[in-house]
C-alpha cells in the first residue's frame, strides 16, 4: 500500500435541501484512496454512492467535513488531468465526433492539437475503438459510448478514475467489456480506480469493497487481486 494519498475524506457529509425537507445523502464518511487502489463502491440505490463519488471527484462540495487531494493539489487542480470521471449517463458531447471527444480534455488542458489527436487515437486503438473515431456519439451503441468515454479517460492519463455505475445502462456482455476497458485503462495509466456499482460480478473484479447504506460508508480490507 502506498503512503501517498490521492483523495481523503474526513467526516464528510452532504445534505440536500434544508429544514424538514432536508435529505442526508452522505453522513460522516471517512475514507482514503491511494495509488493503485481498485475500489468497488457498492450499495443499494439511494444509499449515497453517486454523491460520495461526486464529492471525491470535486464535482460537489460537502456540507460538512473535508475532502482533500494531498497528492494532486487543490480542487482547482483536479481537472482536466489528474481526476477523471466516467458517468452512468451518456457523457460524450453530441456535436463532436469520437476522436474529438477523446481529445477534448487534453485540449482543455492546453495540449497541442496534433499531440492531443495522436494521444486520443492511441487511447482508442488501445481499447480497439479506432474504427469508431469518425462516428458521432449518437451513432454509437451504449456500450461503445461508454468505452469511448473510458478512452477519453485513458488519453488524459489521470491519477484517479472515478466511474459512476458505468455499466448501469448496459447488458451483461457490454458491461463486461466496459469493465475490461476501465481496468485496462487503470493499469495502463497506473491510476487508482473507484467503480460505483450494483453488480457483484463487477465488484469481484476489484480488490477493495466499500459498502454504503443510508449515507454511511463501510470500508473493507483489501482483497488479493
Amino acid at each position: 500500500m502506498s503512503s501517498t494519498i490521492l483523495a481523503h475524506a474526513t467526516g464528510v457529509a452532504r445534505t440536500f435541501g434544508t429544514g424538514s425537507a432536508a435529505i442526508v445523502a452522505v453522513h460522516d464518511v471517512d475514507c482514503s484512496i491511494r495509488p493503485g487502489d481498485r475500489i468497488a463502491l457498492m450499495g443499494p440505490s439511494g444509499s449515497g454512492k453517486t454523491t460520495l463519488l461526486h464529492l471525491l471527484a470535486g464535482l460537489d462540495q460537502p456540507t460538512a467535513g473535508i475532502v482533500e487531494w494531498p497528492d494532486i493539489g487543490s480542487i482547482g487542480d483536479l481537472r482536466p488531468g489528474p481526476v477523471a470521471v466516467v458517468f452512468q449517463a451518456p457523457s460524450l458531447l453530441p456535436p463532436l465526433d469520437v476522436i474529438e471527444n477523446v481529445a477534448l480534455p487534453l485540449l482543455l488542458a492546453g495540449a497541442d492539437r496534433q499531440d492531443a489527436t495522436a494521444r486520443a487515437l492511441e487511447a482508442l486503438t488501445r481499447l480497439g475503438l479506432d474504427n469508431l473515431k469518425a462516428k458521432l456519439p449518437e451513432e454509437l451503441s451504449g456500450g461503445q459510448a461508454q468505452r469511448v468515454a473510458i478512452a477519453r479517460v485513458l488519453a488524459d492519463r489521470p491519477k484517479l478514475i472515478l466511474a459512476d455505475e458505468p455499466t448501469g445502462q448496459l447488458d451483461h456482455r457490454s458491461g463486461a467489456a466496459v469493465i475490461d476497458a476501465l481496468i485496462a485503462a487503470a493499469i495502463h495509466t497506473g491510476a487508482a480506480l473507484v467503480v460505483n456499482t450494483h453488480d457483484p460480478a463487477v465488484a469481484k473484479r476489484l480488490n477493495i469493497r466499500w459498502s454504503m447504506a443510508n449515507g454511511t460508508l463501510i470500508v473493507s480490507e483489501p482483497l488479493p487481486c
Binding site: R79, P80, V85, L93, L108, R152
Partner: peptide
C-alpha cells in the same frame, strides 16, 4: 447538459 459535461471534464469559464 453538454456544457455541464464540458465543465465536468475541466473546461474553465473562458473555454
Amino acid at each position: 447538459r453538454t456544457f455541464a459535461i464540458a465543465a465536468a471534464l475541466g473546461a474553465n469559464p473562458r473555454q
